[in-house]
Design a protein around this nucleic acid. Structure first.
Lengths: 205, 205
DNA sequence: CCCATAAAATGAACATCGTTCAATATTTTT
DNA sequence: AAAAATATTGAACGATGTTCATTTTATGGG
């Protein structure tokens, strides 16, 4: 039996989440089970439930990690180069998101498979992590809107972001081949979307 | 024991799918189990597996029905009124999609939760049902492109369609509140997307 | 140092799931 | 009527998430 002084409660939580992350990496989401985690860290299955309300709760914590990495990805200098036009930065940001969806595929999928437990609202700290994702794009859109139109700018950010996500999602889950089987097709489509959207924004000024 | 002359194999398949559809409606996707279906139609669980390869196979058949209804929805006259400007039709089509996602919520979700069994490619007949979904939007976009640019038009259709889907998805799964908690916010966002995208198309002519 | 109390870890047990397949029941063919 | 073919069955298997009475470990006071 694991001795309870081996780790503090918080250390143990981190240990579980680290191992969960590894399991997803090696065996995919299907391989992520309470028993597998427990066995790997040398604890009994019941211990998981001393630390997390449920497996859904654990999935939520994994998603939190994923959202943090995604935020860092979208905040990276390659997508936020002040020396480059906003359009270039946006294209880079869209491609960064698509690369992220491929590189972190199982984690990225979990973000959308997650089901809220019953009618419970998503917790505030989690919603905060989601809302934060729009900030880098908002920063890029800012100069294109008068200061008085901040609300409209924020909507534009969410609409464009959602659009890129939709493109990425249908592409990545293999539901739709946008232009052809070409590997570059998602890049082309993404660039086309941003060019068109920005042109539309300027035209409607 | 059910007598095997009660139904032909095809009738039985339809019976199973009808009951599966009902179960999703009444108990949600979680209530859709082989045992529940079997019990409801007066057969044993094993019978399901005489008709379908697996539950995933059954989900695929349910998805096929959903895709058919969605196709009919997007083909409806309200979104394809020749007497109205294309932009109005597109806005109506986007709203029709969003209404569909709400009205058929569990079925609509299943379209994206479905996981391909192993590395098997999606079957051609299923891919056909997906590709067909773009046709109504392609018809609306057609007049905006020279005939020689058909490929570009098709890409535009898929990009705009994906964008609307992304908007709808993030809205419907409660991940993102686009403008506010307002009920009309998704309509506003969707209209904004289409106006901007079309303006961008014309500007880049 | 010992013992009472608190806390953590356990793992068997429960309900449920998808799935299999030998056995049984039914129909068709000979 | 017997035999072959086919459909249906349902117990059984190996999983899963989850619970919780029991056991183990740590702590603190006398």
């Amino acid at each position: 039996m694991a001795r309870r002084s081996d780790h503090t409660r918080d250390e143990l939580k981190i240990l579980v989440l680290d191992k969960a992350w590894q399991l997803i990496d090696s065996k995919g989401f299907e391989g992520l089970t309470a028993r597998a985690i427990a066995s790997e860290i040398g604890y009994a299955p019941g211990t998981i439930y001393n630390l997390f309300d449920s497996m859904d709760d654990l999935y939520l914590q994994i998603n939190a990690r994923t959202l943090d990495i995604l935020y860092d990805t979208l905040s990276a200098p390659v997508c936020n180069n002040p020396g480059k036009p906003s359009q270039d930065n946006m294209k880079a940001m869209a491609l960064a998101y698509m690369d992220f969806a491929r590189d972190y595929h199982p984690y990225w999928l979990m973000l959308f498979n997650f089901r809220l437990p019953e009618d419970r609202k998503v917790q505030a700290w989690y919603q905060e992590k989601i809302d934060r994702l729009f900030e880098p794009l908002e920063t890029l859109l800012q100069p294109m809107f008068p200061e008085a139109h901040e609300r409209k700018m924020k909507m534009a950010a969410r609409v464009l972001w959602s659009s890129v996500h939709g493109l990425c999602f249908l592409q990545e889950t293999g539901k739709v081949s946008i232009v052809s089987q070409n590997d570059a097709s998602s890049d082309i489509a993404s660039n086309f979307l941003i060019e068109t959207f920005l042109a539309g924004l300027h035209a409607n000024d």
